[in-house]
């Protein structure tokens, strides 16, 4: 059994990272899960959420927007629309987006078409702030 698992993170714009890691944690459609080396082949969709991976002793966090994770032969491929490393997150912007989304949600009802959109925006902003906060604590 391999000691490490290769994590590949791909967005439509670029390959964000390719790294040998010890452990991956992400938020799937059915909740949070972890992937260790030697995991069985696995395919899941990811929700707006956080992805973290452990390499050596260090843990890194990323904020993800919608995507997929596939595990195959000690390789984890993550396909996402956007991915931001903790140090790339613009906290001011996230805060502003959070405020905007909250404002908009107050005016809308569940039936409105935009409700889902704003809700997603709210989630994204929250996750970004969460990830940024984790990076700041270190």
């Amino acid at each position: 059994m391999a000691e490490k698992i290769t994590l590949e993170l791909v967005t439509p714009y670029r390959k964000v990272l390719t790294e040998e890691v010890d452990e991956i944690t992400a938020t799937g459609a059915l909740g949070e899960f972890g992937v260790l080396p030697g995991h069985a082949p696995f395919l899941t969709s990811l929700k707006i959420g956080e992805l973290s991976y452990k390499k050596g002793g260090a843990v890194s966090h990323l904020a993800l927007n919608w995507g997929y994770l596939e595990v195959k032969e000690d390789k984890a491929i993550v396909l996402v629309e956007t991915a931001e490393r903790a140090d790339e997150i613009d906290l001011e912007r996230a805060k502003a987006a959070l405020g905007r989304a909250e404002e908009a949600l107050k005016k809308l009802t569940i039936e409105d078409k935009d409700y889902r959109v704003m809700e997603a925006a709210l989630e994204r902003a929250t996750i970004r702030m969460q990830v940024a906060a984790k990076a700041a604590r270190k």
Binding site: F42, L43, S45
Partner: peptide, 26 residues
């Protein structure tokens, strides 16, 4: 290899197909 799918295959396929169209347009 036998894959573990989460949620079901059908659900995944339903989600991934629109993405496929998006990527093609992009």
């Amino acid at each position: 290899p036998e894959y573990i799918y989460e949620p079901s295959k059908g659900e995944l396929l339903k989600e991934i197909l629109p993405k496929h169209v998006e990527v093609q347009v992009f």
